[in-house]
Simulated assay, not measured.
Amino acid sequence: MRRNLRVAAYAVCVRDRQLLLARSPGPGGTPEWVLPGGGMEHGEDPYDTVRREVTEETGYRIEVTGLLGVDSRRRLFRRRGLTPMTDHHALRLVYEAEVVGGELRHEIGGSTDFAAWQDLDAVPGLTRVRLVDVALRLWRERPADGRPAAPPYPGG
């Protein structure tokens, strides 16, 4: 079995009751909203990762104001045809941040194609990845141990 670890850093930027999100083409071509952020490069500090990724995906420069928590998710899957199973472990650091410069723009040639501020009340109605809900729970609850009080998704 193939094993894969992906470490990534994401930002929760809330301003005027709106959340900054980016749109990803999603699996099967169905667009889904994601937090701005992404994978760490080898040797990169996660603090630098989140600042770089937010700028790449939204055009904004941010100041990290705190670490909200860590989301760890593991799943097994098979890629394309007869390849061996992959044991994928996603470790995601979720930061709180505020916009300090730049202008909203969309990423070109990257993993997202659109960036926008979304009303917090509208987020539950959006097609979004699970991490958006996890991050908003961390932002609202601010647990001392960096984990929401209960799993935000079935099965833990």
Results as ranks from 00 to 15, higher is better:
R73P: 00
L67C: 11
E44Y: 04
E98H: 10
V54P: 09
S111C: 11
R52V: 07
W117F: 12
T49M: 07
D113H: 09
S111F: 09
F77N: 00
R130F: 00
H88F: 05
G38K: 02
M40C: 14
D87A: 08
R128F: 10
E103S: 14
E103Q: 15
T55L: 12
E41G: 11
E53F: 02
L91A: 01
G101A: 10
H89D: 04
E44W: 07
E103P: 01
D121H: 14
Y47I: 11
I108P: 04
H42W: 13
R130K: 10
P84G: 12
A97M: 09
V54L: 07
T58W: 15
L91V: 14
V70F: 03
R61P: 00
G81S: 12
E98I: 07
T49P: 02
V129F: 08
T58D: 08
V70D: 02
D45F: 14
T86P: 00
M85I: 13
V64Q: 02
R61F: 10
R78K: 10
F77G: 04
D113A: 00
A122C: 01
R79S: 08
R73D: 04
G38F: 09
R52L: 10
R79M: 06
A115E: 01
P46R: 13
S72C: 01
E98F: 01
L93Q: 08
P84A: 12
D119K: 08
D45H: 14
G110E: 08
G38S: 04
R73Q: 13
I62S: 06
V64M: 11
Q118G: 00
H88T: 01
L120G: 15
R79W: 08
T65D: 10
G69M: 07
E96H: 09
L68Q: 07
V100F: 01
E107A: 07
T65A: 08
D71N: 01
Y60D: 01
V100I: 14
R130V: 00
G69D: 11
E96I: 10
H89F: 05
P36S: 02
E63A: 15
R105N: 10
V99M: 03
S72R: 09
H42E: 13
H42R: 09
G109Y: 12
L68N: 03
A97R: 12
D113W: 00
G125Q: 13
G66P: 10
R92P: 00
A90Y: 00
A115H: 08
R80E: 15
G101M: 03
R78M: 07
E44C: 04
D48T: 05
V50W: 05
E57L: 11
G43M: 08
S111T: 15
H106V: 06
S72W: 00
G102I: 06
L93C: 04
E63D: 15
L120T: 12
H106R: 02
A97G: 13
E53C: 04
G39Q: 15
T86S: 08
Y60P: 13
P36D: 02
I62W: 06
L93K: 08
T58M: 07
V123T: 03
G109W: 11
E41H: 12
L67V: 14
V100M: 06
L91T: 11
E44P: 09
E103D: 07
D121Q: 13
A122L: 13
T58K: 05
Y60T: 09
P46T: 15
T83C: 03
S72N: 05
